[in-house]
Design a protein around this nucleic acid. Structure first.
Lengths: 218, 218
DNA sequence: CATTTTGTTATACGCGCGGATAATCGACGC
DNA sequence: GCGTCGATTATCCGCGCGTATAACAAAATG
């Protein structure tokens, strides 16, 4: 009785791809890029290593897909935050900042994943393009929200302020994610809102209420 | 005439160790942790792979030493910035902030190195200790400089402000290092000083002069 | 139910990895 | 100068890596 060939089910391409991408992200988040070997990824996704090459020509391609998925997911979550909120500029800016400093954006796995791929981003033109697109989309949204505020700004001032707010949010995102236990719930959000308000010279005490998803008609 | 045995010079332990540590840091900065193999490190340091094991029992030990050296170097540079500067609180804080946002602290290699080791820091207790020591030293210095400012602060306020300033500086350090060409010289310093001043509600137009090292009696 | 298609597994290959050990030879005490 | 010591090199080992290819079987097709 030799070991029988492993049973399996055929799955849709979409299911397989997303499973492999998720497995890659999880492994990088847990143990860095060197932990995301093809064998480990396949095991995590519940398939055998060879299947990876059926959906991705090379491991690098899977890597790129995983990074792209990370960036897309983060920007999507940022956009979601602006969906249900009102039209008041202060309110919209506050919602955007708060969403960036709360789960699911605030997430240690995402930070480690982002950090683990940093050097690849610098050396791989395709990843660099993905990164810059995501980065600029975020900063543009931020700058647009700042420009909508009711105040007079000198030319060029908005750019500097957007850079500063972006840096502040990034820093809080990293520290808040990695040292989540060190902070009280929503303490990071409060600090972020207060600091952004100070940088921009506006009142930003608008509702940072988490509002527990009052609908979705589930 | 078979290939002769490689010529070599004996070096002090200190020289060898620092050469190996530097080589490790360079390689991680350039190509991430997976590029820093023992063979590549040895080649970069001008020795053969076996020698690494003469000075470090394992590669992990060398890795830890390299990370420790990075953190020590950065905090040392931060402390240096406070050496020659006057006693005015605003001036000292400004000097500290500016030094953190200028070379040699502002350095893409340092950022990538820091990012590349992030997941190891989370999983290795020894590295975690090194990291926290460096991190807290920085934040304590920052908080001390903030508390020295001539103003009245509510209890607990300083902590929040130190976290915010720290996050802002971190974010600017990362973006300024990675996108150095995107910014004008000292633009990041200017943004950092202006934003820290806004967060703390103080004037901080104190001299961010680079002062080209007017002495050292070399 | 027979046939084709192709998603999936199984197996193998070559390479570079980190680590261990033995041989060598540069420097230093005497 | 001559030994002696140990810093340094040379060589080897087993393993896990990414990749390639063939065998297989689950579903689709008629």
């Amino acid at each position: 009785m030799q070991p029988a060939r492993r049973l399996y089910r055929r799955e849709s391409e979409e299911n397989r791809r997303s499973a492999l991408i998720s497995a890659t992200q999880e492994l990088v988040a847990e143990g860095g890029p060197e932990a995301a070997t093809v064998r480990a990824i396949a095991a995590r996704a519940g398939v055998t290593p060879g299947l990876i090459r059926h959906y991705f020509q090379t491991k690098d391609e899977l890597t790129r897909a995983a990074y792209r998925a990370l960036m897309d997911g983060m920007t999507a979550k940022g956009a979601d935050a602006l969906d249900g909120v009102g039209a008041l500029p202060e309110e919209r800016l506050a919602a955007f900042v708060a969403a960036s400093l709360r789960p699911p954006v605030l997430d240690a796995g995402a930070v480690v994943l982002w950090a683990g791929y940093m050097h690849k981003v610098r050396s791989d033109p395709e990843l660099l393009a993905v990164h810059e697109a995501g980065y600029l989309a975020y900063r543009d949204t931020l700058q647009g929200l700042i420009e909508a505020l009711p105040r007079k700004a000198k030319p060029g001032q908005t750019r500097s302020e957007a850079i500063a707010c972006n840096a502040l949010i990034d820093g809080l995102w990293i520290e808040g994610s990695l040292l989540r236990t060190t902070f009280q719930p929503d303490e990071v959000v409060a600090i972020g809102l207060r600091s952004v308000a100070a940088i921009l010279g506006v009142e930003l005490t608008a509702p940072p209420v988490p509002l527990p998803d009052p609908g979705k008609t589930l």
